[in-house]
């Protein structure tokens, strides 16, 4: 006899204050990794990565007093599963702050899971120039990689199962800052 489906269990991984502290620390780590702001470019992946990159850029600017160029990247057209998705995904805006050649590009995303989004982002960035270095910065690393990709800077790591969901909410889009894990 089939068992009744289990009720979803939602636990909070980061609340607003914890997320704020994580972003603050990530901003400092980016500065250390890039040796300052001179070649630094932050590139957020649509959609929540774009907002997170904006936040981190503002934190860096407050500390350093220097402007940090940032861009937005929509990786839809570089996905490896376009053939198999039913209705076509809506494509967001891609805008990069000039030529990336010689820059230190830091890709910012909300959740790192299979690594396929990052693979697509690397391919897409390569079509915009040849950065000196590309680093990866994510708010949540949930494990479960399907490709040899790892983050340089992580806000919070957590082990998850394939059926779990990581729900990242941020003020600008969702009205509050919070990360929940739904099992």
């Amino acid at each position: 006899m089939p068992r009744p489906p289990k009720a979803e269990e939602r636990t909070t991984l980061l609340d607003a204050r914890a997320m704020s502290r994580a972003l603050q620390r990530m901003a400092v780590e980016i500065l250390e990794l890039a040796h300052g702001t001179s070649d630094l470019v932050l590139i957020g992946i649509q959609r929540r990565g774009v907002e997170l990159a904006e936040r981190i850029a503002k934190l860096i600017e407050k500390d350093e007093g220097a402007e940090v160029p940032r861009g937005a990247l929509d990786i839809t057209l570089y996905r490896d599963d376009l053939e198999t998705v039913g209705p076509k995904p809506v494509i967001g805006e891609t805008r990069l702050p000039g030529d990336l050649t010689g820059k230190h590009a830091v890709i910012v995303d909300d959740v790192l899971y299979t690594g396929r989004t990052v693979r697509a982002a690397l391919d897409e960035l390569a079509d915009f120039g040849r950065p000196q270095r590309i680093s990866l910065c994510v708010l949540v690393d949930r494990g479960g990689r399907e490709l040899p990709i790892q983050a340089d800077i992580v806000g919070k790591s957590i082990k998850t199962a394939p059926g779990d969901r990581v729900d990242v909410q941020i003020e600008e889009l969702d009205g509050r800052d919070q990360v929940d894990v739904i099992r």
Binding site: D81, L82, E83, T84, V85, G86, P87, K88, V111, R165
Partner: peptide, 16 residues
């Protein structure tokens, strides 16, 4: 282009 229905279902479980 593409977007074959029978593959869409299979892809759903894999992706986030």
């Amino acid at each position: 282009a593409g977007g074959r229905a029978e593959l869409a279902e299979a892809a759903k479980r894999g992706s986030e």
